[in-house]
Design a binder for these strands. Structure first.
Lengths: 196, 196, 196, 196
DNA sequence: CATGAATGAGCCTTCATTCAT
DNA sequence: TATGAATGAAGGCTCATTCAT
């Protein structure tokens, strides 16, 4: 059973013993090894599955022929929604997968790169008709920043549950999208004297 | 010796054996226990020290009677600078401290709350003369987002070393501060039709 | 199927898993247990069968109304021939059965005693007309020595395949039978000054 | 403690648990690993030590400027004596080391080759003044046979303790040395009609 | 009857932690 | 005081052995 995600999320990789996982899953330890291989492979499988689900949720929401900002908006909403409904999954991806130093470290964070790529693509798309259109790869730092801001807000959210997924997503849109719009239109901040 | 930070950062918490730490530090294991207590306590002490240094670096840069945007700017610059000069420290704080599931998990992330508080204060301060001044605690989500964006950019930076600390800090200022400015001045994004 | 002999010979007793044996045999594991009982019993059954075949081969060759030396000669020849044609069988009997420390250890080496008995009988028979005929049980040490020499030569043979079964058998006859003949005829070696 | 030899000899390699070895040795398991490394390494170390002692015992006895037959005689005597005083050691070398199929299998049987080489040298030396002197490497089959006969007798001895080391050694000398002497002097056995 | 699926028990190995010197 | 030496406790993994189908 892939409710091993629960145990990993609850105790971390090393503190999670295969005994506890097998107990929680309701099967015996040899079954874990028969079906999922070693502990490393089990962990990797969990990460893969959860990452795929998260990416699928976001991708599904951003599809369609909406405008970039609408796509981003829906993507953020679905991200917050998915995460709030899959706490353990998020803990696994965010807290544990980033930390493990093992042969598979590449795969552990691949999902993040996919998300960044998705965002960067939207941002670039948004500049298409602007004065100075930009390439996708110049958008990456902004995409990374937006992704990080989202992740950070999710963590904070769990400590302040009185906010809604949509409320947080809208806050992020306001903060980032507006600033991004300014940027595209040529208004920018310079070190010795910002606007506000 | 607190060069245990190096070992923790290099191998992670569990892979770092007390043997290796004591060897690297040049003392014997019983000394580690005499001075720092258990492995958990040692780790906590490391986190505390590194967190204090990071917060000190940022606080030192934001002090003075500068305008809020300048303070934020200097804070971000010094954050990126400090992190780039203390890779191990950052790895410890960001990658390891967030993951541990132990009795001290509260203290492990306290530094983050301090940083958020600092940013939130600056943001609130920036609205003082605006049409609708806001309280510090309403700024927290934005501060959290900014902090997360910064952390995320730092990680990304290590894979793209051709950027400078100032360059990244400026990008963040442009993205966030401008959007924040719009917000303060009443321009905002609404779900069914953003600006750009 | 008793092709489990192959697996035992190939990997040794402990390295041979019941899974591999059942796979190689083309039946399922429960069948193994239904027909042959436990792993120990299976091993014992293999040893018994192979031992019986070996003893049969030797006994068949030594039968008849030949002179003792001819019987011994044919026995040795057939031993070398049988072993070279049943490598796995020999590995099982010689390398594995001697090692096992189980309740059946008696049966594991019974075949060896049979062979020794056969040889001792021949040796005794050879002294029938001599000056001092001897009983079978006084011949046993010599028989044991001859048996050991044969086994040892077989092992050595597998590393020096350029010898023939008959060549080795003849060498053994020359070495042992001649010495035995001397002995029977009263010429013997004494500690402080042998013959050559 | 290298009284692990006892446990290995008593139960075989696989049945001997590190727990039992450490208990028997009077130390804790981690000490075993600290001093002797893994179970494989421990076993190898035991074999190496016991093999060295056995070879030393035999070599020590065969040295000097004695005639070849005297050297052989003393070698056999010391072999039987050493083995009877070190039962566990012999079990390890003879019963276990020959069976293990591991990376070190080369070293496991090296002692045997040394013994064979020693014997072959003595045999060749004995033919120096004879009608047809022979090279050492033509003596190897005889040496192998003699070694095997000795080993076999030792095993048999443990079941018939009423014999003495010297008695068995003398029997072997009579059987092999006399036959060997005949051979050197040109008397040989031919398939269709031996001497006795 | 024959088997896929399941497990209890145990082994090797490691490491945080502590005495005796 | 500082340390080399020692260990209790556990964890990952495997395998002989048996049910439910």
């Amino acid at each position: 059973m892939d409710a091993a995600v629960e145990v990993f999320a609850a105790h971390g990789f090393h503190q999670a013993s295969m005994d506890e996982i097998s107990d929680t899953a309701g099967v015996s330890k040899p079954m874990l090894y028969a079906y999922l291989g070693s502990k490393d492979e089990l962990f990797l499988a969990c990460v893969r599955r959860e990452a795929a689900q998260l990416i699928a949720a976001i991708s599904g929401a951003t599809g369609g022929d909406l405008s970039p900002d609408e796509q981003l908006w829906h993507g953020l909403r679905s991200f917050f929604a998915h995460v709030s409904e899959n706490r353990a999954s998020w803990t696994l991806l965010h807290r544990l997968a980033n930390t493990r130093e093992n042969p598979y470290s590449g795969e552990m964070t691949e999902w993040r790169e996919q998300a960044v790529e998705l965002i960067a693509g939207l941002l670039a798309q948004a500049t298409t008709g602007a004065a100075q259109p930009v390439q996708t790869d110049q958008m990456r730092p902004f995409a990374v920043a937006l992704a990080g801001a989202s992740e950070s807000l999710v963590d904070w959210w769990s400590l302040h549950p009185d906010h809604t997924a949509d409320g947080l997503a809208k806050r992020l849109m306001n903060l980032v999208w507006m600033g991004f719009g300014d940027l595209v239109e040529g208004r920018s901040w310079e070190p010795s004297g910002g606007r506000p």
